[in-house]
Amino acid sequence: MKKILTSTLIGALALTLAGCGSNTQEREFEGQELHLYNWGEYMGENLISDFEDQTGATVNVDYFESNEQMYIKVANGESFDVLVPSDYMIERLIKEDLLQPLDKEKLNNLDLLSEDVMGLDYDPENEYSIPYFWGTVGIVYDKNKVSEEDLEKEGYNIFLDTKYKGDIYLYDSERDSFMMALKALGYSMNTTNEQELQEAYEWLVQAVETMEPEIVTDEIIDNMAQGRKALGLIYSGDAAYVMSENEDMGFYMPETGTNIWSDAMVIPKNAENPELAHAFIDYVCTYEASMDNSSYVGYTSPNKEVMDELSGEGGDYEGINAYIPRSGNDNDEVFKYDENIRAIIADLWSRVKVVASNAE
C-alpha cells in the first residue's frame, strides 16, 4: 500500500509540474466534449487520450485534408471548439470575423514557446492563434545522386536541370509550387504582380514539359525514404522523417528564400465550449504533449525545450537540419492571404497540371 500511495503522489506531482494544474482542478471538465478539427495524422499517439485522462473530457476529432476544406465548413456555420489551420488561412478567418480572441489569462504555458514562431505577420500579437507546428519547405535529395554544389549553384532551378530529367518529384500544391517558381526567379512568393505570376507559370510549364516530373503529395515521404528519385520539393517535417529513415537523404533550402509556415490552434467564434478549448490549447503547449506530438509526427514543435531535446545530442533528429527551421534569411517569407491572387494561382496551377498530363 505504501508503494501504491507513493506512486500516486508522484503521478499527481508530475501533472502539477506539467503546467496543467492538479488532477482535482482538471476534472472540472468531467463529462464535457471538445470538438477538434485537425489535419489527419497530425497528433501524437497519446495526445488525445492523455488530455481526456487529465481533464475528464471527451475529445471528438474530425479531420480535413486542406485549409480550404476546413474553411468551407467553418464559413457555413458548422461548430468546432478548436481548429488547426495554416497561417494564411488564419489571416482569412480573422479578416472574416470567424474567430474569437483568446483569453491569455487562461493560457499559462505560452512562455514555453519559441519566440521564433510567435508574433508572425498573420497574427502579430497572437491575439487569435497559438502555434501547433511550424517549419519550412525545401528540397529533399539523394546525396548519392545530387551534389550540394549543384544545389547551391542552382537553388530551385535544379528542377530545370535536365541532368535530373525523370528523377524528380514536384509537390501537388499550388501555393508551394508557385513559391518555388517565384523564388527561383527572384520574386516574392507574396507578389501581386500578374506578370511575375505569369513568369512563374512559364517556369513551371518548362519544368513539367522538359523534366518528366512525378507530381505527388504525401507519397513523396515513403518514396524518398526508399530513394526512388533524386530530389523533390517537400515540407521540412516530412524531410526530417525521410532523413531519419535513410541516411543518404539530405535537405536543402535555397538562399533565394522559402516559405516559413505555421499551423496554429484557434477558437472559432461559434465554439460551443471555449473554456475547454483554452484548456486544450494550453495543454498542447506543455512539454509532455509537445514531445508526444513532435516525436511522433516529425514536425517542429514550438515548445523550446522539446525542439532543443529532439534536435540535440541523442535526440530523434540529432544532426537532421530539416527539423529546425532556418532563421536569419531575409528572403524567407510567411504566406499572406489574398483571395484574388489565390484564385489566379489556382487557375494557373491547374493549367500546369494539364500540360504535365499531356506531356506524359
Rank of each mutant, 00 (worst) to 15 (best):
P274K: 04
E275R: 05
E275H: 01
A277T: 02
H278M: 00
H278Q: 04
A279V: 00
I281Y: 14
I281W: 06
V284E: 13
C285N: 08
C285G: 06
Y287S: 07
Y287D: 11
Y287G: 11
E288M: 08
A289D: 14
S290A: 15
S290K: 13
M291G: 01
S294D: 05
S294I: 11
S294C: 11
Y296N: 06
Y296A: 15
G298H: 07
G298I: 05
G298T: 12
S301V: 06
N303C: 11
K304Q: 09
E305I: 07
E305H: 04
M307I: 04
D308V: 08
D308S: 14
E309S: 06
E309P: 04
L310M: 03
E313G: 00
G314H: 07
G315V: 09
Y317I: 01
Y317D: 00
G319P: 00
G319K: 07
G319M: 08
I320F: 03
I320Q: 01
Y323T: 13
P325Y: 13
R326T: 13
G328L: 12
N329T: 13
N329E: 10
N329R: 13
D330S: 15
N331W: 11
E333C: 11
V334K: 04
V334S: 09
F335G: 05
K336G: 00
Y337I: 01
D338V: 12
E339R: 03
N340Q: 06
N340M: 04
I341W: 02
R342I: 01
R342C: 03
I344V: 15
I345M: 15
I345S: 07
I345N: 05
W349R: 07
W349D: 07
S350Q: 06
S350K: 10
